[in-house]
């Protein structure tokens, strides 16, 4: 595979095949954790780490795993990975664990990871799968960052904890709740689709 297409694998996840905004994967963690920018980015980065590792392992085992039992195999590998990462963080980086700890169990049920194992890692080489993991992870983090920014700004009047206008106008509480999550998701998704279509038409 040439350099050109490797770059494409990496960039695909950002906009064109963004896992959240285009492929509509991982919706549950997206809606749940994006009440603030910090939470969104924390979830995005932890999911990316697991995604890259699980993509590598599944790509490594792609010729060993029989088709019939591939899904249980992926789940065992992913859940094992997540638990190992959780234990290691808890033991050696307790400060990081204190801020990310809550997101880690949520990663097991993140369907982006299972989705990429099924759609990409079991058909491609280790290196390409790792690149796909990084690209998709960045795309996920980017989408969570956008959602988190919108919800924190409108819901709290702050951005990344910095006071923007919360001292003058109180935030709209609904953006901190589930309905606000759906509103923001729809608006951002529509905007991305609009720009993608415009670019495609040119």
């Amino acid at each position: 595979m040439g350099k050109q297409s490797r770059l494409r694998i990496l960039l695909n996840g950002l906009i064109k095949e963004n896992p959240v905004l285009v492929l509509v994967l991982g919706t549950c963690p997206t809606l749940a954790v994006t009440t603030s920018v910090e939470n969104g980015v924390g979830m995005g980065v932890s999911a990316m780490a697991v995604l890259v590792c699980s993509n590598i392992v599944i790509s490594l085992l792609r010729n060993v795993i029989p088709d019939k039992v591939r899904i249980p195999c992926y789940i065992v590998v992913i859940a094992g990975f997540v638990t190992i990462v959780q234990l290691l963080l808890q033991a050696y980086v307790p400060a990081l664990y204190a801020s990310l700890g809550l997101f880690i169990p949520l990663i097991v049920v993140n369907c982006i990871i299972l989705g990429r194992a099924e759609m990409f890692a079991n058909k491609n080489t280790i290196f390409d799968s790792a690149l796909d993991g990084i690209g998709m992870g960045l795309g996920f983090t980017f989408a969570l960052f956008l959602m988190g920014s919108m919800r924190e700004l409108l819901g709290n009047g702050t951005w990344l904890g910095i006071h923007v206008f919360d001292k003058f106008i109180p935030g709209m509480g609904i953006f901190n709740l589930a309905p606000g999550g759906f509103f923001s998701y729809a608006v951002i998704m529509a905007a991305v689709t609009y720009f993608a279509a415009k670019k495609g038409a040119k």
């Binding site: 039992v69 590998v77 094992g80 190992i84 050696y92």
Partner: peptide
């Protein structure tokens, strides 16, 4: 073959988990 592979993967993952748990606990 599917059963054997799945059992093997489970065993490897369990062993890895037990090892990490033993060290980190």
């Amino acid at each position: 073959a599917p059963v054997v592979v799945l059992v093997c993967i489970c065993l490897v993952v369990t062993a890895a988990l037990a090892l990490v748990y033993g060290v980190t606990d």
